[in-house]
Design a protein around this nucleic acid. Structure first.
Lengths: 288, 288
DNA sequence: GACGCGGCTTCCGCTCAACGGAAGGATGTC
DNA sequence: GACATCCTTCCGTTGAGCGGAAGCCGCGTC
């Protein structure tokens, strides 16, 4: 992928990150692993088009690229529908309200409302955190395809705090509970001070496409008090997405009974393999 | 630009639009003006990387691209800072609250909060409207570089409603007023039912980098009542961006006396300096 | 004020990645 | 079964992209 021009272009874009949103040409060339001249040419074209912008010798992601990104149905599209309900939920709770979707083995935050009063949390719109460590992550994982669940259970489970779930067996138990309860309550798994109440959002086909959560201070909070509001908001968004009122029956339990290829077909097959039957299920960040 | 691979890649991305956020391969190839095979190859690479996603034979903008777009300082970056204040303003007014930045001769909407009660307006996050026709647009234009102002005054001024300002002389007068008052009140210029109150947002250097507006029903509203709140919110955001408390003295009046290169140095001669005389100051949508 | 340095830009001849026509599925429709 | 549409693979040709070299600019140093 580093070979084709397309790959190089994407490499240039990938050189930018939340920590380094502005880069000089030389930095870009280093980060993308491209000869300076090559980077120069590509960056020039990107800037001419508006995908990058230049200010004081530094390049940054351009508005035009942001506009295109805004067309992502799972990004702003979803956000657009969900916003009024998030707004309501925020108003009732006065706490951080978050909306996240699944990508690879991460939860990607699509929206966050946080008033001045709410706990400060590390998440950021456009940011990602692993599934096992967050409320929204657990909800997404609990309703994800079995093979993805297994992959996460097998993979390393990074510890953020003493409370992070890092034991596969425990995680498995919690996921079952989340499925049963229709809500995930997690305490201090990323940051000790924060507690989150999360619920699933379904699309017209009844599939879980996002998760909604409220993050509150863990100190002196009765989490259960938030459950109805979170659930209601999640249901409201689901309805707005065209979800049937009665969510489909408790779905695919963990492990085993995967109706082989129920959707997308080709599951395993990991690393590239030259793109024969299309790509394997994208897992985590692509090679870049 | 249609020649280089980079250009083709961008062409593929540009094929997507708010009206057509999902496209088949063939549609992409047609819209981008590429042979099917070429489109196939490029789209394949983009999808493998996550810039596009495939669902049921259709391609859509992928989450990964959305993530990268989220790094645009003028997009989500700005939004992130402004959000709490927009929130406040929304709470006080219960009306549409919008934040827009300048791009070419358009205002690009970076954020919009609209509760269920507010007037329905055509704007959309990530969408654009010409400067002369909107409240935020007038604010942005009033504080824009003189050459851009001239360009807009010279260019065709599209009429949306009978109230849209389409006469250069009148526009010039209004701009002066906006500069003087520090706020723009526009009634029914895009849609007859809506009235907007807009104010400028400044960055650390005191430059106007965005505009904030509240859109209310024109029927039975006293616009002036909203002015203080809008102004206060705009000032608050400016302050959060590091703007000096006392905004710089009334700036560059229209026309003429452009202190050639007062900031940035290279005003004319557009982009860098390489890329020969390049295009003149990017105007509206780039060639694509 | 000459020198060195780091970052940026231009030039240009070589080469291999990209191109795209053709042909072959897969699916759906009448 | 014939037709239409859309997608995918193959492969020989060629010019777009490559990247080393060299020059430019602004800056800090001696």
């Amino acid at each position: 992928m580093g070979e084709s021009v397309t790959g190089r272009v994407l490499g240039v874009l990938a050189a930018f990150s939340a920590e380094r949103p502005e880069l000089t040409l030389t930095e870009i060339s280093r980060r993308a692993g491209l000869p300076l001249t090559t980077a120069h040419r590509i960056v020039g074209e990107l800037a001419a088009w508006g995908a990058l912008e230049r200010q004081a010798g530094c390049y940054r992601i351009g508005l035009r690229l942001w506009e295109v990104g805004a067309l992502a149905p799972r990004g702003l599209g979803l956000r657009e529908t969900a916003m009024p309900f998030l707004e309501d939920l925020y108003e009732v709770t006065r706490q951080n309200v978050q909306l996240a979707v699944l990508d690879g083995t991460d939860a990607v935050y699509v929206e966050r409302i946080s008033g001045r009063g709410a706990v400060n949390v590390i998440t950021r719109v456009g940011g990602r955190l692993p599934l096992h460590a967050t409320g929204v992550g657990l909800v997404l994982l609990a309703h994800a395809r079995p093979d993805l669940q297994e992959q996460v259970l097998a993979g390393p489970l990074r510890r953020y705090t003493p409370k992070t779930i890092c034991v596969p067996a425990e995680l498995r138990r919690v996921l079952a509970e989340v499925r049963r309860e229709g809500v995930a309550i997690t305490d201090g798994m990323v940051e000790l001070i924060a507690l989150s109440i999360a619920a699933p959002v379904r699309d017209a086909r009844g599939d879980v496409v996002a998760a909604l959560s409220v993050v509150v201070p863990s100190e002196g909070t009765d989490a259960r008090a938030y459950v109805p509001a979170v659930r209601a908001a999640a249901r409201a968004i689901s309805r707005a997405l065209g979800s049937p009122d009665r969510p489909r029956p408790v779905e695919t339990v963990l492990a085993g009974d995967d109706p082989a290829g129920v959707q997308e077909g080709h599951l395993h097959g990991a690393g590239s393999s030259g793109r024969p039957p299309s790509g394997p299920v994208r897992t985590g960040r692509p090679p870049s």
